[in-house]
Design a protein around this nucleic acid. Structure first.
Length: 283
DNA sequence: CTAGGATCCTGTCAGC
DNA sequence: TGCTGACAGGATCCTA
C-alpha cells in the first residue's frame, strides 16, 4: 500500500474538499470491498483522521468510514472544479471513472469520491465512531514513531527476538506506519542488514532505526507522498516520486549513494528487499 | 506465546 | 503469438 505517508497525504488532500460535504449515495461495485450497512444517505463529513495506515472519515451521525488501502487501494476525488487522487500510483489517477477497478463510489453533494483497488485487499468499513478504537486492527496497532519511546520500541521488538529485523518492523503491532518501501529505506539509513536478528541489534542501532523511520516518512509526507501531483508532472509526462528520496528501493543495480557499491535486491520473509551489501553488513 | 509460510485478488512482465 | 511462473508500496490465518 500506500504506507503511512501516502495515507497522511490523502487525509490532507481530501480534507480540503470533503469537510462539511454530505454523502448523498454510496454505490458498491464489489461487496468484498464494503463492510457494513449502506445506510449513509445525507450524512455529513465532519473530519478526516488517520491511525497508522488506516484512514478514518468521521460523519456527523456518529459513524466512521474506516478505509484501508492495503496494496493497491486508491482514493480519487473529482468534481467540476477540483480533483485529487492518492494511494497506489497508477493511471487510474487520470483515467475515466468508474472503471473495472472501481469498488465503491461515494456521491457527494459536490463531486464523487472513487475507491479503486486492483487486488481487492483493501476495504471500506462502516462502524460507529465510538467503536473505532475497538476494531481488531486499530486495537492492536502500535504507536507511530513520533509517539514511540525508544524503551517501548525495544520492548515491542523484543517480542520477536528470533525474527529478522525487517519483518519485525513491518509488523504494525510493533511500530505503526512502515511498509515495504520505508522499511528498506530506514534500514539503509541505519546501516542495518534486513536479515539481522532482532536479538543482535545494539541499543544505538535500535535508537537510530526509530529515528530514521520517522525521518523517511516525514520526508515522503513533505514531498507529497504518492499522489496525482507527483504521478503526473505539469507537462503531462509521468513522474516518479520515489526517485526523489528512495536511496535503495527499486534501485537494484545502481550504485549506493554512500559508498558506490551496487545495490542488491533479495527476498526477506517473502518480501522484495533492497540494500547495500557493504553499508548494511550482515555480521 | 512466536515463527514462517500460505492466502486473499488482479494485472504485468520476463522467459520460453 | 500464447503460455507460465514470479512478483507486487498489506495483513491475516494456519500450522508447527
Amino acid at each position: 500500500m500506500p504506507e503511512l505517508p501516502e495515507v497522511e497525504t490523502i487525509k490532507r488532500g481530501l480534507s480540503e474538499f470533503l469537510i462539511n460535504k454530505k454523502i448523498r449515495k454510496i454505490e458498491i461495485f464489489c461487496d468484498k470491498s464494503f463492510l457494513g450497512p449502506n445506510e449513509l444517505a445525507n450524512s455529513e463529513i465532519i473530519s478526516i483522521s488517520r491511525r497508522g495506515k488506516a484512514l478514518l472519515i468521521n460523519l456527523k451521525n456518529g459513524i466512521t468510514l474506516m478505509i484501508h488501502l492495503r496494496m493497491t487501494g486508491q482514493l480519487i476525488y473529482r468534481s467540476d472544479n477540483n480533483s485529487f487522487a492518492g494511494g497506489h500510483p497508477s493511471d487510474n489517477f487520470i483515467s475515466e471513472l468508474p472503471n473495472k477497478q472501481t469498488r465503491v463510489v461515494f456521491e457527494l453533494d459536490d463531486g464523487k469520491l472513487f475507491f479503486n483497488d486492483q487486488r481487492k485487499f483493501g476495504f471500506v468499513k462502516v462502524l460507529p465512531t465510538a467503536e473505532v478504537k475497538n476494531d481488531p486492527f486499530i486495537k492492536k496497532l502500535a504507536k507511530e514513531p513520533w509517539e514511540m519511546s525508544v524503551e517501548e520500541f525495544v520492548k515491542n521488538l523484543n517480542r520477536h527476538k528470533n525474527s529478522a529485523v525487517k519483518p519485525t518492523i513491518l509488523d504494525q503491532t510493533v511500530l505503526a506506519g512502515l511498509g515495504n518501501i520505508y522499511a528498506d529505506e530506514a534500514l539503509f539509513l541505519s546501516k542495518i542488514h534486513p536479515e539481522r536478528l532482532v536479538s543482535s541489534l545494539s541499543e544505538i542501532e535500535i535508537k537510530n532505526l526509530l529515528e530514521n523511520s520517522k525521518k523517511v516518512m516525514e520526508e515522503s509526507i513533505d514531498s507529497g507522498g504518492s499522489t496525482m501531483a507527483t504521478y503526473v508532472k505539469a507537462d503531462g509526462t509521468k513522474g516518479d516520486y520515489l526517485k526523489k528520496f528512495a536511496k535503495v528501493f527499486r534501485r537494484e543495480g545502481e550504485p549506493c549513494v554512500r559508498c558506490g557499491t551496487e545495490i542488491i535486491k533479495i527476498r526477506v520473509a517473502g518480501r522484495g528487499t533492497h540494500l547495500c551489501p557493504k553499508c548494511q553488513e550482515k555480521k
